[in-house]
Each structure stands twice: as structure tokens, then as C-alpha cells.
């Protein structure tokens, strides 16, 4: 290495370190989120949803957001008396959106995990979920042990399926995608033997596409899906929790299921997927 290059590299490393320390110092002071009153005052709430995850959060042909999460988001806006500004998020940047206060709530099929709970605050859950694995009918994977050393499994970056496989089955080769659309297209193109994701996602995929079967319908532990707010945003969190409990009265999430999910899953999965009042009011 030339002397000049070494110098430049050294200066760069110092610069990055300085920036990093600046960033951490900034994060400690001052809150990033907006309180309930501030949101009401502004007349607008920013809610992060998926825009390419049919039927949970997607955009229809008229450019309108639709889906199970979106249905709930609209109700939140209505009951708060504010306009909802939908922000298109990806699985990989949901936590960052909350950590920086760029959205007030994430309603993007966000599975509750201990790891995520260190960075964001989850409200009461509104749906059940486990992991599932879908594969082509020509070679259905019924157990993870059937996946050979040469085979690859599709996962989406930043999802619980990715975490689970890395932690519990590090021998399995993963093929990672940033968007749902690309992951599904890759599976259809046969670039991997299976796709691991939330079981809601893979069941929907197998029901919608000929020639695929969910060989492993439930992998790992039963998890829940919940709204999330920035760490420490207590006023908003408390309001959402009250809202979810109050909505159990009218069986809101059953209505939500019947409006958005029934076309995909049929009525068979309604009781196993839907959670009312955070599961406490049963």
C-alpha cells in the first residue's frame, strides 16, 4: 500500500468513527417520536404499512392502500380524528422507521419478538402467526431435514423466518430477498427448493398458486402480530391498547378478517388467526 493511501484510509476511519459517536450522542438526548397530543394537533398520523404484501398491506389498481393491516390503520385514524398518511415500508427497515420517528406506528405484519421489543414498543397483538415453509408439489419439503446441503431456501431479509433459520438451522443455505414480490417470483422461477416465511404468507401463496404446497405449516413457536410504536412513546401506546380492547366489543378484527382476508384464506382459518382485544378478552 502506498503511503498516501494509508493516510487517506486512516483519515476515513477516523471520520466514520467521529460520525458514529456523534450519532450515538444525538440519539441519547431528545425524543424522536410524537406524543398522542402532538399527533392529534398535527391532524395527521404516519403509519408504516407494506405496499406489496397482499392481503395484509397492498395497493389496489386505483392506487389505494388495502388489506388487513390497512383496515385497522384506517380505523385508528378515524377514532383519533386524524388523517392517515400511509408510508410504504419494507421488512428490513421497519425498526429503523420507528427508531427515527419517521412513522408514528408500524402496522406491517410485525411479529412480536424479544429482540425487536428491545428497540420498539409493541402494543397488544391483533393476529396469531407461526412460521411456515412452502415448496413446489414436485418436491414437497415436509421437514427441514429434507433440505440437502446443495439446496437453498428463500427468506426475506429482516423477517422472523430469517432469524429463526440462522439461529436454529445454520447449515441451511439461505437465499435472501428485500421485497416480497421478488421472493415470490424467485420461488416461481425455481431458484430455490422452498420459501420460509410467516405461515399466513406461505398458506396464501399455496392457495393462490397451483402446484405449491405448505409442507411445514407450523415451525418454531406460536407468535403474534402487533402494532409497534417508537420506544418510550407511552401516550400513543396506551391509546392503541385501549383502542384494541374497546374494539373487541364489536368484534372488529373478525369484521376486518371477513373484509380483507376471507378471499385468501376462506373462513377455516378465521378463529386461529384473529385475536380480539389482544387475546385477553376471550
Amino acid at each position: 500500500m502506498k503511503k498516501a493511501t494509508i493516510k487517506v484510509t486512516a483519515i476515513l476511519v477516523l471520520l466514520v468513527l467521529a460520525l458514529a459517536s456523534l450519532a450515538s450522542a444525538g440519539a441519547e438526548g431528545g425524543k424522536v417520536y410524537r406524543t398522542l397530543d402532538e399527533i392529534k394537533e398535527s391532524g395527521k398520523i404516519n403509519i408504516g404499512v407494506f405496499s406489496d404484501k397482499n392481503p395484509f398491506g397492498y395497493v389496489d389498481e386505483n392506487g389505494e392502500y388495502q388489506g388487513y393491516d390497512v383496515y385497522f390503520a384506517r380505523r385508528i385514524g378515524k377514532d383519533l380524528g386524524v388523517e392517515v398518511n400511509f408510508v410504504s415500508t419494507e421488512a428490513a427497515n421497519r425498526v429503523e422507521y420507528l427508531e427515527t420517528g419517521k412513522v408514528d406506528i408500524i402496522l406491517a405484519n410485525f411479529t412480536v419478538t424479544a429482540e425487536r421489543a428491545e428497540k420498539v414498543d409493541f402494543a397488544l397483538p391483533y393476529m396469531n402467526v407461526a412460521l411456515g415453509v412452502v415448496s413446489p408439489k414436485s418436491r414437497v419439503i415436509r421437514d427441514l431435514s429434507e433440505i440437502g446441503a446443495e439446496d437453498q431456501v428463500i427468506v426475506i431479509s429482516g423477517t422472523t423466518a430469517e432469524d429463526y433459520l440462522i439461529k436454529n438451522n445454520p447449515e441451511i443455505q439461505l437465499q435472501k430477498y428485500d421485497t416480497y414480490a421478488n421472493a415470490k417470483t424467485a420461488l416461481e422461477n425455481g431458484s430455490a427448493v422452498a420459501w420460509a416465511n410467516d405461515n399466513t404468507e406461505v398458506i396464501a401463496f399455496a392457495l393462490e398458486n397451483e402446484g405449491y404446497e405448505v409442507g411445514i405449516p407450523s415451525l418454531g413457536s406460536q407468535d403474534t402480530i402487533a402494532p409497534a410504536v417508537s420506544k418510550g412513546n407511552e401516550t400513543l401506546l396506551a391509546w392503541i391498547n385501549e383502542e384494541i380492547i374497546a374494539l373487541a366489543e364489536e368484534k372488529f378484527f373478525h369484521a376486518d378478517y371477513e373484509a380483507t382476508l376471507v378471499d385468501t384464506y376462506g373462513l377455516d382459518y378465521e378463529e386461529s388467526l384473529v385475536l380480539e382485544g389482544g387475546g385477553q378478552a376471550k
Binding site: S51, D52, K53, N54, Y58, V59, D60, E61, Q66, S88, T179, Y180, A181, N182, K184, T185, E188, E208, N209, T264
Partner: peptide, 16 residues
Amino acid sequence: LKVAQQIIEANRKASP
């Protein structure tokens, strides 16, 4: 590209 992905996703059932 995002609009394209949204369109593909919203129509996966009707137009695979």
C-alpha cells in the same frame, strides 16, 4: 420499480 411490485402483488391471484 415499487409501483411495479405493488401491481404484481395486488394481482398475483388473477394474473400469476
